[in-house]
Amino acid sequence: MNCKDQDVFSGGLLILFALPGYFCAAQIENLKVSKLSGAFFPDVCFTVMLVCGLILIRQGLQREEKIPLPSINWPKLLPVVGVLIAYVLIMEYVGFIISTMAFMLCCMYAFGVRRKKILLSVPIITAFGVYYLFGKAFMIVLPGLSDLGMFQ
């Protein structure tokens, strides 16, 4: 089986997702009075995924010209995902403004911005701008330093 074909790979992935899905659905509690358990609909969805997976594998194997797997530029992608995860995690501890400025600085640097004026001004304007826009215009209080007991 040529797993390097995009359809074969996608089909395999769907099956790999559907099979444990059946197992998890089987663990769902069932009320004895119900004619249809809560697992019924997820099972239908997993079956659709399984069938689609098989169709994709068949399609990929039958096609003479293979569709190559997508090329993902991991060195460019992973730092951005990492910075996004770190942003959410540190926001809880240092508040919105500091985490946003740090995130924007790292993100723009990772994106190739090197001009100091932009690297400094855009994070500050964005962090304070969004913080006050959400707080004043939309009445949504974002986590601030006061949440940490500072500046109270």
Binding site: L84, F103, M104, C107, M108, F111, V113, V122, T126
Partner: peptide
């Protein structure tokens, strides 16, 4: 420049 726009969108 999207190098500036995209971090704002992410925020």
């Amino acid at each position: 420049p999207f190098q500036v726009l995209m971090p704002i969108v992410a925020v």
